[in-house]
Amino acid sequence: MDNTLLFAVISLSAIGVISAIILYFVAQKFRVIEDPRIDIVAELLPGANCGGCGLAGCRAFAEEVVRTEDLSKLNCPVSSSEAMKQIAAAMGLEAAEKDPLIAVVRCNGSRANAPQKVIYDSAGSCAFAHSLSSGESGCPNGCLGYGDCVVSCKFDAIYIDAVTGLPVVSDEHCVACGACVTACPRSIIELRSKGKKDRRIYVSCVNTEKGGPAKKNCSVACIGCGKCVKECPYEAITLVNNLAYIDYNKCRLCRKCEPVCPTGAILETNFPPRKEKPAEPASVADTAEA
C-alpha cells in the first residue's frame, strides 16, 4: 500500500520535473522577442478588431504605434480621446486632439417618401440588389434597406427601422469605425462630426440625378436647387452634381439652411424645437401632394 502511494507520488513528480525542464528549453528556443510596449498599447485599445484604423486589427495597430513611434498618422476612431491620450502617455508622445465622429445615414427615402415601384425578390444583400437594379423605389442612389451596414457593424450600433426601412445609427453605440461606410454599396453613410450635444445638420440625400427624376422617385430628394447654398452665411454648403453637401467643419449649426429647403432634404438632429416657425416643411405634407 505504502509502496504504491510512494511510487505514484515519485513518478508523477518526476514526470512534472522532466516536463518543466523540456518546456523551459523549448520556450527558450522559440522565444519571440517583442517590445513590451506593444502589449501595453494593445491593452488600452478596445480589442474589437474592427479595422476602423485601416490596419488589420488592434494588435496590428499597437505594433504599428510602437514601430513608428508616431501617433500623428495613426488614430483609433473607436477609442475615446481619453484612451488615445493614455496610449500617447504610454509611448511618451503627444496625442492629437480629434473631433469625435459618428456615422450618418444620408437617405430619407422611406416607403412613405419614396414609394415602392417594383418588388425586389432576390438575395437580401444591398450589394447584390445594387448590382441588379436601381431598387424598389427606383432611386439609383437611395438606401436599399437590406442591411449590409447592419451586418458590417461590430458594435450593434446600427439597425434597420421596421417602419421606414432605413438604417438608424445609435448615438450611444456608434464608434465611427467606418465599417458601414465601406459596406454600403451606394456610399450613403458618411462619418461626420458628432457635434455638441449630438446636434448635427446634414443633407439627407446622395442622389446626383437632376431635380425632375430625383423628385419623381422620392419626395425628400435633394433636387439641387441651391437655395441652401445661398442661405448659408459660412459658405459651408457646396453644390456638386445636383447635390448639396454641408461641410461639417465649416458648418456652425446656425439652422438657417434647413427651413429653406423646398423638399425637406436637410435634416437636423437633437435640436430644440424652433420657436418662430413651428410648421416644418414636413415630408408628410410633400407626400400628400405627390
Binding site: 415601384k117 417594383v118 418588388i119 425586389y120 425578390d121 432576390s122 438575395a123 437594379s133
Partner: peptide
C-alpha cells in the same frame, strides 16, 4: 400589378 425584379 407591380412588377417583380429578381436575379436570374
Amino acid at each position: 400589378s407591380i412588377l417583380t425584379v429578381s436575379g436570374s
